[in-house]
Computed example of a mutant assay.
Amino acid sequence: MTAATASLPLTPALASPRALAARDPWAMVPSLGNLDAYISAANRLPLLTPEEELRFATRLREHNDLEAASRLVLSHLRLVVSISRQYLGYGLPHGDLIQEGNVGLMKAVKRFDPGQGVRLVSYALHWIKAEIHEYILKNWRLVKVATTKAQRKLFFNLRSMKRDFKNGAADADVHRQSLSSAEIDLVAAQLNVKREEVIEMETRMAGGEVALDPTPDDGEDAFGPITYLADEREEPSRLIESKRRDALAGDGIARALESLDPRSRRIVESRWLQVKDDGSGGLTLHDLAAEYGVSAERIRQIEVAAMKKMRAALAVEAA
């Protein structure tokens, strides 16, 4: 029973239903915390005759009589229990389904107009199912699977239709078996939805959910998608490293070159930072040897010494 239902002023004897059950069946309010006891007690509550229902509904509508509202709600608790059983296949607690259905029942009682000439049971069906449907859609999956009218229609009918197609197969087997092309067309025609929507909903309902980040209960070897979904380019330490590398490649190298003598700088720039007119690399050791009138080995020695000095300068920049 929901907290909202429990708040209604039913009778003073509600605290001890067994003691008063014999002389007042309306005192048999279900016990909280025990679902079987609740269902058993709800099924023992008496139904209202059409005359009693009309009288209580009129009292509620014209005089806001909460005692009348209580009688209308309690007499239909078994209806909520019956409807909630139809949705046990979604893996949600039966007690929660009943609770949501009770919320829908109370909404129906509040809005019920006895002057329309229909029984409350017919009117309440819509409200009870609407609340249960909304609860299932919010809690069946972390990711909402049905948002449009067509998707909701498919969500609450596709399971039973697949079971009919597969001749009463178990729920788990039904999910694993895909609809054939002819079955997809049949579902689309019966529910008046697009064929593509049937395929999409079947895929959504067949898919499972995986935790992005494994919990400690999953064990030390657990592996979550967050491991390979992370964008390493945005990882803070990598961003800092990248910025530092860019700085060294720009201003850092320029300052390192300034630490060299003119000849050493000329050799490094000609060898590594300049391109010939034909698009090829910089000057060769022999080209520079001819320019300075020394051997190619001497140019190589100067280059090695210059590069060593530049690396030291860059290390200071990075520190």
Rank of each mutant, 00 (worst) to 15 (best):
Y292M: 13
A189D: 11
V118W: 03
L125N: 11
A41T: 09
A188W: 12
Q274F: 05
A57F: 07
S16N: 14
P50L: 08
K194C: 06
K243Y: 04
S178D: 12
D218M: 15
V103T: 10
T147K: 08
L158D: 04
V316S: 02
L283C: 10
Q190V: 10
V81A: 15
H286I: 12
A27P: 01
K153R: 14
P12F: 10
L97D: 05
A305G: 12
A188M: 07
G219Q: 03
A182L: 07
D185F: 09
R245W: 08
Y87V: 11
V187F: 08
R85K: 13
W26L: 15
E303C: 06
P236V: 15
E291S: 07
I226E: 13
P25E: 05
A42V: 09
Q86A: 13
Q301P: 00
L288I: 14
A249T: 05
L288W: 06
Y292G: 09
P93L: 10
R18G: 02
E52V: 09
M310A: 09
L47Y: 01
V210L: 14
M310G: 04
H76E: 09
R255P: 00
D185N: 10
A318Q: 10
G293W: 01
V294P: 02
R44T: 11
D221L: 12
R266G: 00
A130N: 07
P262Q: 09
V145P: 00
T227Y: 05
E235C: 05
P216G: 11
I39Q: 04
L97K: 08
A22E: 10
N43F: 06
D261R: 13
H126M: 12
Y38N: 01
A206W: 02
E131Y: 06
L314E: 05
H175F: 11
L239K: 05
G101R: 03
D213I: 15
A169S: 04
D278L: 12
S75Y: 04
A289G: 03
N43S: 12
R111C: 07
E297C: 01
S259Y: 01
L48D: 04
L273R: 12
N157Y: 02
A313I: 06
V275P: 00
G219F: 06
F112C: 12
L125E: 09
A222I: 15
A37E: 13
L285S: 08
W272A: 07
K162S: 08
K309P: 00
M205W: 03
N34Y: 06
V145H: 02
E52D: 14
T11S: 02
V268Y: 08
E200I: 13
A222S: 14
V294A: 14
E209M: 12
Q274I: 10
P25Y: 06
G89P: 01
L186F: 03
Y87D: 04
A172R: 09
P30D: 04
D287S: 05
R78S: 11
Q301H: 06
A182F: 01
L45V: 13
R61I: 13
G207E: 07
A108I: 12
P216A: 15
F56P: 00
A150M: 02
A188I: 13
W272R: 12
A206R: 15
L257R: 10
E209N: 05
F155M: 15
S82M: 01
F155Q: 03
T11Q: 01
P46F: 07
D65R: 04
A41M: 07
A189Y: 15
T203M: 01
V294C: 08
R266S: 10
